[in-house]
């Protein structure tokens, strides 16, 4: 379930950044940063609301929910979205929606498997996004070559 949410969150970050960057007065940097700030505060509001809902739950439920809230906090989801927005910073003339979806999927896998090993290293998130974009681009080139052969 968490894996699916991570993928959907990445996809949301990538697609919204990709679309917003095309608008006048926006560029990829402004789109990525503004959307991440917006997403962080939205996630924070949802987190607070969920915590308030837990007041009526049993103590065992509260303990379990506090543990999950600490692991999957607003910051965690904002980090996922931020990573997705890096994927969405790709140029439209090079990357289609299909490639963006593939890159997002690739990023979600890297995020779940590799990023915990690189915690606290600046740029690891962006580097993972770059690897996922490069992988999907390479797959497209390989596919085109196979079609041509």
């Amino acid at each position: 379930m968490i894996e699916l949410l991570v993928f959907l969150c990445t996809l949301a970050g990538a697609f919204t950044t990709y679309r917003l960057a095309k608008l006048p007065k926006f560029n990829v940097i402004r789109a990525s940063s503004a959307l991440t700030i917006l997403f962080y505060f939205s996630a924070l509001i949802i987190e607070k609301w969920l915590m308030a809902e837990n007041i009526i739950a049993t103590s065992a439920d509260i303990a379990a929910s506090i543990e999950s809230t600490e692991t999957y906090s607003a910051e965690f989801w904002a980090t996922v979205f931020f990573g997705g927005s890096f994927v969405g910073m790709s140029a439209p003339h090079r990357f289609s929606y299909y490639l963006l979806t593939m890159s997002s999927l690739c990023f979600a896998v890297i995020f779940m498997l590799l990023l915990p090993l690189l915690e606290g290293v600046g740029g690891a998130l962006g580097c993972s996004a770059f690897i996922s974009v490069a992988v999907s681009h390479s797959l497209r080139l390989a596919g085109n070559k196979l079609k041509g052969a």
């Binding site: 910073m89 140029a91 290293v121 740029g123 962006g126 580097c127 770059f130």
Partner: peptide, 21 residues
């Protein structure tokens, strides 16, 4: 190089940080 590739800036930052480490 890699113009238009998403995550390029992050990869640059990662290279700089990794070189320090």
């Amino acid at each position: 190089i890699f113009e238009g590739f998403g995550g390029r800036l992050g990869a640059i930052a990662f290279t700089a940080v990794s070189s320090l480490v």
